[in-house]
């Protein structure tokens, strides 16, 4: 297997250019899918036999929760690649994941609390799923905090990468918490071995929203990573050339 593509992505000018080209291919589909998913979830999907209309919170809670895990995994794997192969772009991608991942986690926890009150009867419970999700937030915050405390970018990359790698252990704990321990939180409805336990009329808007969030993550990660790459290499020759090209492109 040739690793040429791998190293090409590690080149900042190439990454900056290619990320700018493909970002819209994530951004616009995300917007379209989001509108379809919202209409499907709020209007087309029927009420639930048990939770009535309260269950509709699932369409914003579950995609945010999935994306929190996806973002953390992407961040930790990028950080590990950056650490092992000393690729700066990988660290820039990890940085791009951290801020938005914390956002997904907060949305997941907040919408979960709002869902918990009318169904469980409590805003909060020290349930294994909720506590492990809270840990995920701490790892995101720890990553960002640790970087903020170290001035030198290379040293910040390495130290924060180790923290991100340690936190990856929490990802399967979040996923399997509801299987391993008695919990108030329900067991998975979609990602289960025996197939989804949610009617198709309610499932398709959920899958659409999850896909919309995934595309949104792709878009925002690329935009943030581009900003991070520019910030790191400001003053370098390739940045000067890239900006010149962009200015020429805007004029024509």
């Amino acid at each position: 297997m040739s690793w040429a593509w791998f190293h090409r992505f590690g080149s900042p000018p190439y990454f900056y250019w290619v990320a700018g080209k493909i970002a819209p291919w994530f951004g616009w589909p995300s917007l379209v899918l989001l509108l379809i998913g919202l209409y499907g979830g709020l209007v087309l999907a029927p009420v639930d036999y048990f939770q009535s209309d309260a269950y509709r919170i699932i369409y914003v809670h579950v995609p945010a929760s999935w994306l929190a895990l996806l973002t953390y995994s992407t961040m930790a794997i990028s950080a590990a690649i950056g650490l092992i192969w000393r690729i700066k772009i990988a660290h820039a991608v990890a940085v791009a994941c951290a801020g938005v991942g914390a956002g997904f986690t907060i949305v997941s926890l907040a919408t979960g609390m709002i869902w918990g009150k009318p169904t469980w009867g409590a805003w909060w419970a020290w349930d294994p799923r909720i506590v492990s999700q809270l840990f995920l937030l701490f790892f995101f915050a720890g990553y960002t905090g640790l970087r903020a405390a170290i001035d030198d970018t290379d040293r910040a990359d390495r130290a924060s990468a180790v923290l991100a790698i340690v936190g990856i252990v929490n990802v399967p704990i979040v996923r399997y918490s509801v299987d391993w321990w008695n919990s108030l939180h329900q067991a998975p409805s979609v990602m289960r071995a025996d197939g989804p336990t949610i009617s198709w009329s309610m499932l398709w808007p959920l899958l659409t929203m999850a896909l919309a969030y995934t595309f949104y993550f792709g878009w925002i990660m690329l935009v943030r990573a581009r900003a991070e790459v520019l910030r790191r290499d400001r003053g370098s020759n390739w940045v000067r050339e890239a900006l010149t090209n962009e200015a020429a492109g805007a004029r024509s």
Partner: peptide
């Protein structure tokens, strides 16, 4: 002194039940 309701992972329209 506190009772919470636990709903399960099944979602379906009322007609189906």
């Amino acid at each position: 002194d506190e009772v919470l309701a636990k709903h399960d992972e099944n979602y379906m329209p009322p007609e189906v039940t």
